[in-house]
Design a protein around this nucleic acid. Structure first.
Ligand SMILES: [Mn+2]
Ligand SMILES: [Mn+2]
Ligand SMILES: [Zn+2]
Ligand SMILES: [Zn+2]
Lengths: 142, 142
DNA sequence: CAACAGTTTAGAATAATTATAATTTCTGAT
DNA sequence: ATCAGAAATTATAATTATTCTAAACTGTTG
């Protein structure tokens, strides 16, 4: 049970999305090399570099379809830019403020306890923990 | 020690910001009625409604200056829009996904444990917990 | 191979935010 | 009170990520 789908084609089938040239190529870029956190423009750049003719609009469409299908998770941390996370298991993030880098924290290595029940009804869909890290160790603290 | 500053003027003095008409008025709108989570355009709207002549650019400038001075905290949850939080104490948030509403969770009512030390050096600046809530209790779950 | 829905695309539109550069206001001397 | 310089405000333009639109294209199914 290492990879849930042997290849991009199966993955698209399972998501009930037509295996178009663009979606196949994007799926490969996204899922064939370990977990990643990628922005839309970034992925578009990779696709162009890999000679895959795909428009930015399609990259956005595809990313959102993948999120809808549970293949990706959208991570919002900074105003103005979304990251798409190929790791859809329960986990959290370090965020390096100076470089903008995201790094996974395995879900079971952090415990969030005593979350009160949400007021005015409603059910908890997800708990996101973002650990903001600044590069240089701070000196001027007691 | 209920309110750290008796009035907007003191607050600006302590932050070493000139007490201009606009900053005074915005400070009053922000801090004179309990804790709030407010977006820039929203605050601008309130200012105009209160007959305070202030441009949107100044609202942005002022909000960022207040963040810099530790009077406000910037909360990013949705792509495309920042909220400014008048509660700068250690706390977390419920986020109601359908309405976009933010609600404080007191810092001491949640415990985040076992946060691993950040790899590649760096020090933890803050840990943000966002509890995403969907309004209707979900039915179709085992 | 049609036919038709689903997909892609270039380009325009949108929305929040930030930058620019001219004007105005605050401050602290005189 | 006046004045000069610094700081702040503003209208407006620019920027950036994202979404929309409507026309062209492609994948599927009979
Ligand atoms: Mn999105
Ligand atoms: Mn900001
Ligand atoms: Zn992740
Ligand atoms: Zn808050």
């Amino acid at each position: 049970m290492t990879r849930p789908f042997a290849n991009a084609l199966e993955l698209l089938r399972a998501a009930r999305l037509r295996p178009t040239r663009q979606r196949l190529a994007l799926a490969r870029l996204l899922f064939e090399k370990g977990d990643r956190h990628v922005a839309a423009e970034e992925l578009h750049g990779e696709a162009l570099a890999a000679q895959i003719p795909v428009s930015l609009a399609t990259v956005y469409n595809t990313l959102h379809q993948f999120v809808g299908a549970g293949l990706l998770r959208e991570v919002v941390i900074n105003p103005g830019r979304s990251y798409f996370d190929t790791n859809v298991s329960d986990h959290h993030h370090f965020f390096y403020e100076d470089s903008g880098l995201l790094r996974d924290i395995p879900g079971d290595s952090i415990a969030v306890s005593n979350v009160p029940p949400p007021p005015e009804g409603g059910s908890i869909r997800r708990v996101d923990v973002i650990v903001r890290v600044e590069k240089a160790p701070q000196k001027g603290r007691a």
